[in-house]
């Protein structure tokens, strides 16, 4: 479906995104540094990293807008430039995709529809789908961020593509909009589409994505399943005598550690813990699964001098392992700020 010459391929082969040793230098500044990862069909992949990590630059290289300094990126095995009818293979909405303020949203889509070779009915169908059919008849100059996002999404969907690449799609959406987006993307991924969405906040996409690709200072720091990010399963228990419970659990072959006024148990089998406590005659005041806070995970992974926030000269070469006081305080400051939004 991505090529007309190749024999029909299974969708799982046709729509994989592959990034291999991709590097982009702007002058002496390395924005993307030897980055490699793959994005699988039928899954939603979150492309994560702090501001200035190189996400947008990577996506722009993937979409043929920015020329890589070295390395390659392919979609379904093809360079974006070589895809015959790109909008019917890859739908994309980039952060900076803007609209002419004097043109209506609908006309913007109609221009793209001309390019994609689809007609006005498809345009109206997509506007209906993203929920802005009436607003799209007004000039785009007055659109809110959320409306721009929806219009961008409608544009991406015009050609009914197999691959969806969205840069910060949740940016500017209200909670209801984010929930809607989540359901929308989930629905598309069950159809076997390949979906790559970027974000600078792990929590924002936590409930949306299956896989994550995390970068920092232009380099890959982690690729894997979202579920694995939380680390080993643990549960938190509060009771009267933590040492007694720890002993009883040890008999049941479960390790645990006392932390402050609670005990952390290395399992997420709450039933087992309850049964052990009952047998030991210990009352339970609190019992729940404890997931490693994703925000912490994210900071841990992307820690280091953010090359974009001062002192950047040394940071240019990538993660230099600087975990000094400066990084920690900056980290805490941001954590506090963003925690407040939750």
């Amino acid at each position: 479906m991505t090529t007309t010459t190749a024999p029909p391929t299974r969708p799982t082969d046709g729509a994989r995104i592959e990034v291999r040793n991709l590097t982009k230098r702007f002058g002496t500044f390395t924005a993307v540094d030897n980055l490699s990862f793959t994005v699988e069909p039928g899954r939603i992949t979150g492309f994560l990293g702090p501001n200035g990590a190189g996400k947008t630059t990577t996506l722009r290289m993937l979409l043929g807008l920015v020329n890589p300094s070295s390395g390659a990126a392919t979609i379904g095995g093809q360079d974006y430039h070589d895809i015959t009818q790109p909008m019917s293979v890859v739908g994309s909405a980039l952060e900076a995709t803007n609209f002419h303020p004097g043109r209506t949203g609908r006309d913007h889509l109609r221009v793209l529809a001309d390019t994609a070779g689809v007609g006005a009915p498809r345009v109206d169908e997509m506007l209906e789908l993203v929920g802005i059919p009436a607003a799209a008849r007004k000039r785009a100059g007055g659109y809110s961020m959320g409306m721009r996002q929806r219009l961008g999404l409608a544009a991406a969907m015009l050609g009914d593509p197999q691959v969806l690449i969205l840069d910060e799609p949740a940016n500017g959406l209200d909670p209801e909009g984010i929930r809607w987006l989540r359901g929308f993307l989930r629905h598309l991924s069950t159809q076997g589409k390949t979906i790559l969405i970027s974000s600078h906040m792990l929590q924002e996409v936590e409930q949306t994505v299956d896989d994550v690709v995390i970068i920092s200072n232009g380099r890959l720091v982690k690729q894997g399943a979202m579920a694995d990010l939380h680390g080993a399963p643990r549960a938190l228990v509060r009771t009267t005598d933590h040492d007694a419970l720890a002993g009883a659990l040890r008999v049941a072959d479960v390790t645990s550690t006392v932390e402050g006024d609670a005990i952390m148990v290395d399992t997420n089998d709450l039933r087992l813990i309850g049964d052990v406590a009952l047998r030991a005659g210990l009352p339970i005041y609190e019992l729940h699964r404890a997931m490693t806070d994703l925000e912490d995970v994210f900071f841990e992974l992307t820690e280091g001098t953010n090359r974009n926030l001062g002192e950047g000269v040394t940071g240019v070469t990538g993660v230099t392992g600087v975990t000094g006081q400066g990084a920690a305080t900056e980290r805490d400051a941001i954590a506090g700020q963003e925690g407040g939004n939750e």
Binding site: L63, G64, H81
Partner: peptide, 14 residues
């Protein structure tokens, strides 16, 4: 100016 060049080149990468 309005960055619509991005969607133009996405639609027609050549």
């Amino acid at each position: 100016r309005h960055k619509t060049i991005t969607s133009t080149f996405l639609g027609t990468p050549k």
